[in-house]
């Protein structure tokens, strides 16, 4: 039965490929157009203009609200589906903060939870066809990573004073090596926000661009468009995984950096 459906679906794809094939198959691929920022009201993109960025950021906020507030509104002792997911997310991030950053990192839990929920929701919303992916923009991820970098640096100096500089002075290494290691550590410290932000934006952007490229092939190949369509299906599944993993990676790296600020000794 399943096999029959598969062949019917395959035949439909082939027939539709024949029927809807463009008159003159042009390779019209614009993989980066999906990332364009455009004003929804028309006109220039000013600082306070309402754009597609505004729309999809607002949708991310709404999704967070729906899951975490509406989902947990029944306060049931035996949770329902939405409450289970909300509690699972809470427990997942709480345990991560506690395990990686330590007991005194727990007071940063709401902050880290904010980062995780935002990135997760933005990534998943970006997977809806025709949507706009806010986390594919360097401007957004750089702000997120910059916030983490600033927080970690300020917390490090407030908590440890000058002792925070011990993070760069590897006391377990031979004395002669320490200045060299200090320079390397210093560079790696300042590269952190760059890698932190570009990793997220790069992964999301690359996946979405690949989907668009395959979609362009599907439009151009006519009869054989089923091949890129299968590829799109596979890449989409991978992108769902990447959407979660990148949110997870961003969050756990934040916890690791926070641990450095709270306990700078190696």
């Amino acid at each position: 039965m399943g096999k029959l459906f598969f062949y019917v679906a395959l035949a439909l794809v082939l027939v539709s490929g024949v029927i809807f094939a463009p008159e003159h198959a042009a390779l019209a691929i614009h993989p980066m157009d999906q990332f364009n920022v455009a004003s929804l009201t028309g006109g220039a993109v000013g600082t306070f203009a309402i754009t597609n960025v505004t729309l999809w950021l607002a949708l991310a906020v709404v999704c967070v609200f729906l899951l975490m507030v509406v989902g947990s509104s029944r306060r049931a002792i035996v949770p329902g589906r939405a409450q289970s997911v909300a509690e699972l997310t809470y427990g997942f991030i709480y345990k991560m903060v506690e395990d990686v950053a330590g007991k005194d990192g727990v007071k940063f839990f709401p902050y880290i939870m904010t980062l995780f929920m935002f990135i997760l929701m933005a990534n998943f919303l970006g997977l809806i066809p025709m949507s706009f992916t806010t986390t594919s923009h360097i401007a957004v991820t750089a702000i997120l990573a910059g916030l983490v970098f600033l927080t970690v640096t300020i917390v490090g100096f407030v908590k440890n004073g000058a002792g925070f500089l011990g993070l760069f002075w590897v006391s377990s290494a031979p004395l002669a090596l320490r200045p060299i290691l200090a320079i390397i550590e210093l560079i790696s410290y300042f590269v952190r926000p760059v890698s932190h932000s570009i990793r997220l934006a790069g992964n999301v952007m690359a996946g979405h661009a690949v989907l668009k490229v395959f979609a362009g092939f599907a439009g151009a190949l006519g009869l054989f468009s089923f091949l890129p369509i299968f590829a799109i299906t596979a890449v989409y599944a991978l992108e769902v995984l990447v959407a979660f993993i990148q949110a997870y990676v961003f969050t756990i790296l934040t916890c690791v950096y926070l641990k450095d600020a709270l306990h700078p000794s190696h």
Binding site: V37, V45, G46, T47, F48, A49, T51, V53, T54, L57, A58, A60, V61, V64, F65, M68, V69, P110, Y111, M113, T114, M117, F118, T134, H137, A139, V140, I143
Partner: peptide, 20 residues
């Protein structure tokens, strides 16, 4: 477009932080 993105991102982050 950076100004626009950063402005709305700040609002979204503050909103999520307050909600959470």
């Amino acid at each position: 477009t950076f100004g626009n993105q950063i402005f709305w991102l700040a609002i979204a982050l503050v909103a999520i932080y307050l909600i959470l």
